[in-house]
Design a protein around this nucleic acid. Sequence first.
RNA 1: GCCCGGAUGGCGGAAUUGGUAGACGCAACGGACUCAAAAUCCGUCGCCCUCUAAAGGCGUGUGGGUUCGAGUCCCUCUCCGGGCACCA
Length: 856
Amino acid sequence: MATKCKDYNFQEIEPHWQSFWEENHSFRAENGSTKPKYYVLDMFPYPSGAGLHIGHPEGYTATDIMARYKRARGFNVLHPIGWDAFGLPAEQHAVKTGTHPASNTQNNIANFKRQIKALGFSYDWDREIDTTDPKYFRWTQWIFLQLFKRGLAYVDERPVWWCPELRTVLANEEIVDGKSEVGGFPVERRNLRQWVLRITAYAERLLADLKGVDWPDSTKRMQEAWIGRSEGAEIQFQLENAALGSLKIFTTRPDTLFGCTYMVVAPEHPLVDALTTTEQKSAVAAYHKMASGKSDLERTDLAKDKSGVFSGSFAINPVNGQRVPIWIADYVLMGYGTGAIMAVPAHDERDHEFAVRYALPIVQVIAPAGEAIKLPYSGDGKLVHSGAYTGLDWPEAKRRITADLAARGVGKATINYKLRDWLFSRQRYWGEPFPIVWVSESDYRRAASLRQDLPAQAVTFAENGVTHFALPLPDAALPLVLPDVQSYLPSGNGESPLANETAWLEIWFNLETGAAVPSSQPLPAGTVWVRARRETNTMPQWAGSCWYYLRFLDPRNSTAIASPEALRYWGVPDLYVGGAEHAVLHLLYARFWHKVLFDLGVVPQSEPFTKLFHQGIILGEDGEKMSKSRGNVVSPDTIIASHGTDSLRLYLMFLGPLEAMKPWNPRGIEGVHRFLQKVWRECLTAEGAVNPKITASLPEPAELTKLLHETIKKVGEDIENLRFNTAISQMMIFANALQKAPQVDPSTMRAFLQLLAPFAPHLAEELWARLGEAPSILRAPWPAFDAAKFATSEVKLVIQINGRHRGDLVVAKGLSQDAVLELLKNHAKVTPYLDGKMMKRVIYVPGKIINIVTEG
RNA sequence: GCCCGGAUGGCGGAAUUGGUAGACGCAACGGACUCAAAAUCCGUCGCCCUCUAAAGGCGUGUGGGUUCGAGUCCCUCUCCGGGCACCA
């Protein structure tokens, strides 16, 4: 089975064992197994034209070691891979070359696959998935329909980022520093019809359930901050002009209500016009023009310089009846709370800055005990100048004031979130089409009488005075595939290239079956055909990655996203490894979809990723981020050719802690490569025969046996804790000892090869076979350690005098303090420090240290 | 500005609950083997003082503190990295 090479010829060995694994389907995960399961998942890649960079195999090697280790531990391991293959680069390539994005995507996938296979990862290739495959995105569309039916998807005309250069809309997260993340082009605001998912309905659960997951703290905190929960109150201020009603504000500090000296509404607030008095009209108009002319970049970047204008109107403070002037200023955002605030300049930095600039009064209402303070003050204290509430601690006052306002019907306790609903459409070709058609109101009502799968409230959109109704395709009509198009260029008016495909777009639609006929053809017979226009938006790239971890459980299922048995048996990943750049978006969106599927009873658990780990970034040799322009990029292909993939895998793990950012050192790989060669030489002679020192006829040194058992323990523990760098150190220590030992028991050598196998699987397979074992090291159960083998009766005790290390002593394990002190009387290195001194104190930690504190 | 993470030899890093700082590897230096080289093996390798000895002193970004004892705990500051950024 093995190769016959005499020296460590990795170029022959590695492809040999890769074909062996492939032919034997060695890594196939069994559905319906009685073994315990272990599901270890990588964030699947976007198959870019550039191919793999060194960061991919870092995370993938970590999960591969875990997968191989867990298999040896007797688990039925699911370790899959697939392609997140919709995306803007493929579309831009299509625009440029006129070729279908699918063909470019498939080429890229083939290249990625070749590279990944050369790394020897133990993926179950029978479960490979591709988000652009209609058999896959049929279920992405299906999940969208479930959201739609539950009222979690709606259409709204809203200001979105429009990039004239890319001729498409971008999401907030695709904008970096006011420019498009792809290409770095300028962007502007435009109002366009968009699909939006109601993720805010899940804000509370998305926040609360973070407590139960095993994730890096920093990632949890980022999600918490992104969701941004804050408790406060909505309070109504009666307007002085009673005809206008009241102005509703949100505050987290109702206890500072007596310090409210003015109010602010956002420039986009619906009451702005009504509040503006005749005298102020021109000033407000001028301000409004200036504020709307600011790009969002300016509005945030120039945040330090607050500006605003007086509306001319006043409101009445509900706690003390005072007249409060209402200002219009763009430091208040329409998108959060009610778009209006009460300003308390004494206790809010922003309000303070504004009040100083416009000479508005500042009234202190919170004072800490005793100390003098500088305003604005936002610390603890008791209320002052606050009528009946004066003297209360502010949290208590917050409760009471909120309750009193609620009793009067002018306020209520509320919770606000920074999280916004998720803008879920793109005006592009290369994405999942929405399984939605737009019909007239009367046709929608007919559909509603025929079908059970419509949302409680119709999703509509008004355009040029006509209201269109969103009608879902029946589940059975899925997938809705992309039509071929003449041009991949966006239409340029805010619709995708699909808007130009009249035959696909304008249709006769069968209300019951979802069948379609181009409207250019005659209306089909029957009463269930209506005139419809397809949705031209497509879904964002996030859609396919929101649920892919579920498809791996049962990837060929044509009747469900996965069978209930598979969903129950495999559940969710036991370990999920990927970059920290996905800390918020992907991981939040996927959690949202998973919770919806949980509510639908599709999945049996409410969180998708119970244990998450972020691998760090590998920097270039120069300590800078790898990039083509810096010329510091290391390609896995090059390293595999020069040192082999086992060396690459080992070195990626040996560089440092998995989560750390660490520079690539081209010479460092020599070190791990030498280690592998050393292992080879310990197993085989220069002629390729079994090394004669591997023999059971003479005993191996007891020290070696002891070290083996220590190594088994440490390597196992380190793998469980993803501390691969120290596991490798330990194996190097063992290999050094192996080299010095005159004889090695065959069982010792075998056990060591098994420890090495998850890290350097090709070499381990080869040596395993060359030592006469068959058929594969993958079948051998993980070696067990025997703690008795490394338990010792003697320990080294460190001796300190006054906290300074003065020597050490090997003593019997359970020795008493008095016995140790007796021994020290004759310890040459120690006695000079003790002679003639009084022992003031002795600290004795058995087995570790004895510290003697002397007088004077 | 706010939140989080980090700083240990020439380099990457190791160090359990506070208990011998520098494991393992890279680089460097000396030696063995060799006609020679590569490979391999043996040895040295934080800084200072010193005879290249013995012994000692200093040392984990800065300054302080707690402790018999601090890389590890507390406070201060500096620098580096990441996230958020008018969210009331």
